[in-house]
Amino acid sequence: MKVEIWSDVMCPFCYIGKRKFENALSQFPQKDQIQVEWKSFQLNPQMKTEPGKSINDYLAEVKGWAPDYAQKVNDHVTNLAAEVGLKYNMDEAVVANSFDAHRFVQFAKTKGLGDAAEEQLFKAYFTDGKDTSNHETLVELGSEIGLNASELIAVLQGTRFSEDVRNDIYEAQQVGARGVPFFVMDRKYAVSGAQQPETFLNALEKSFSEWEKANPQPLVTFAEGSSCGPDGVCD
């Protein structure tokens, strides 16, 4: 059964939500039958990459917050991240447009490394203070998870996977996502936000139960060998 997750690398609750979903999935008996697909979403498509600007100043500009209030919000989010074992260094976060980071993930998905790419991006952004729009940084992150550097460079220097990113963003609107993280189970049930593991587990159980009824598995697995058919022909 497919679980689709819309997220943006600059969304602090997306990384927290990833951990909480993974916690739920680890408790799910049929976890081996769950296919997770990461989908692109941009919270601010017009964002300019500004390495010298603090995340507090950015939030103050776009949300109209006072800088000290932005700091309190980030401190709160940092504490929530720590509860699930994540270390956020928000003061080091680089304000960066995420479009190429999403193209990076789309390329990684073609190699079966979508989840690894998401994990690398989140850690780079929230923990390591790296510029996730920088092509050299993305190539470095890609190499660490096993992507071919030359192939990735070619992707980033061109426009490949741009339409895939845009299609995911459009698709998010069609399934009712107004923010991220947004989890969709079998295109029937949705969970919005970084919910508790119990919420994810309940959604997995309900959606999988219905999916399993619609997709019954064979009761017996067998190896084929020499045999005779009802027509009397033996081979």
Rank of each mutant, 00 (worst) to 15 (best):
L152C: 02
G146P: 15
V139S: 06
E163Y: 12
V175K: 01
V191Q: 08
A172M: 11
S192A: 09
T78V: 02
N56K: 06
F104A: 11
N89A: 11
F99R: 02
L219D: 00
E212I: 05
A108N: 06
D168R: 14
P230D: 05
C14R: 10
E171S: 12
S54R: 09
E83P: 14
F183H: 13
T199W: 13
V175G: 07
Y15M: 00
I34V: 11
T132S: 03
G179R: 10
L113E: 05
E37V: 14
W211A: 01
E224A: 15
L121A: 03
F126K: 10
L141Y: 05
S150R: 15
G193E: 00
L219M: 10
I153K: 14
F41L: 01
L201T: 12
Q173V: 14
V155K: 01
F28P: 01
R166E: 11
L59P: 00
Q106K: 15
K39V: 06
A190I: 07
S192T: 10
E50A: 15
H76I: 08
E50L: 15
W211H: 04
D235E: 00
S226H: 14
N134S: 03
P51E: 11
A108Q: 09
K109D: 06
K18N: 15
A116Q: 14
L156G: 04
R19P: 04
R160Y: 07
K20E: 03
V139D: 00
V94L: 01
F126M: 09
K53L: 03
N89F: 06
I16H: 04
N79E: 07
G85P: 09
H135Y: 09
D128C: 08
D115A: 07
Y170A: 08
P218E: 00
V233C: 01
V191A: 10
V139I: 10
M185T: 13
N44H: 09
A154F: 01
V180P: 05
G225D: 00
W65F: 10
E118P: 14
Q71M: 11
Q35N: 12
